[in-house]
Design a protein around this nucleic acid. Structure first.
Lengths: 152, 152
DNA sequence: TTTCCTTCGGTACACCGATGAGCATGGCAA
DNA sequence: TTGCCATGCTCATCGGTGTACCGAAGGAAA
């Protein structure tokens, strides 16, 4: 991991459809050297894969919701049951077990409030062992995900 | 947006490095028809771009932190100042203005607790107009980001 | 210092896949 | 029916990817 690799990771997080030749020029290396480094970053697991960034607005997904979940019990069984149920619902995009006041944080997207209401009834209300839910609607995105920071 | 487009979006969110011919076979279309649809999805803004998925563990970024921020004032000036400051710090990966108990939710990654402490002192403590911070450390990821759900 | 070896970048090129032209087909409205 | 538009397919071309090979730089040991 030198400055070249760091530069490659930064560029590929911004745009992975760039031609290797262009990437090479941008970081100041020949095509083949750059190509070799990219392959190495892939095989070493530094690069996990490549994804298309889909525009949620274009899909009609205008509502982003964060839900803080508190369980009735922190027993292994209760947590296992909850975590298993979370996997079932595609509408739950992310779920993290955390310290702090809540036990879990969920991230959900919906088309609108009515759609969220449906998700709430059909998914969230069915999650087992939940004692409390604190819902936060996203009003505006101040800074959105643009990849991990790569030092160097 | 028919079932072909939906299928394309789902596949490209999983793996955008797939060859068009393979993608075409997977969704049951010829190479060129598939290719045209992909280009159309790009030009229409449905696909925003392409990114490499970087493995944070491999970068040594083991700690994920969510910070709920409350401002002293919800005036336009206070919010503008805060939002401007958030843009300055690369360590703040995401920031969302929300309803609920907090005003803003920040997402931050760090190498370890010591590193987070440094980020806290050098970035978070310098954010203007903050009256309260509620920090949540991610203990375990139950479900991680795998793209937006595409109906159809 | 000399020699060897390893590492890593550069050059050249074969070949695969992206790209786009051209054509076929099927629905829809005049 | 006829023309038009949307959308499919086949095929040819060309650019980019991936690879073989060469050379330079740096380190270790005699």
């Amino acid at each position: 991991m030198d400055r070249f690799d760091a530069h490659i990771l930064r560029e590929l997080q911004k745009d992975s459809h760039i031609a290797v030749a262009d990437l090479a020029e941008r970081i100041g290396l020949s095509t083949s050297a750059c190509h070799r480094r990219v392959k190495l970053l892939e095989s070493s697991g530094m690069i996990d894969g490549y994804s298309a960034r889909v525009n949620p607005k274009a899909l009609g997904l205008d509502l982003e919701v964060f839900v803080d979940i508190t369980l009735t019990s922190q027993s292994q069984e209760a947590m296992d049951a909850f975590e298993k149920a979370v996997q079932l619902y595609d509408e739950i995009l992310e779920c993290v077990l955390t310290t702090g006041t809540a036990d879990y944080i969920l991230r959900i997207v919906a088309r609108d409030v009515a759609h969220y209401d449906m998700i709430h009834r059909r998914c969230l209300a069915r999650l087992p062992g939940v004692s409390g839910m604190q819902t936060s609607f996203a009003l505006r995105s101040i800074k959105s995900w643009r990849g991990y920071p790569v030092p160097g």
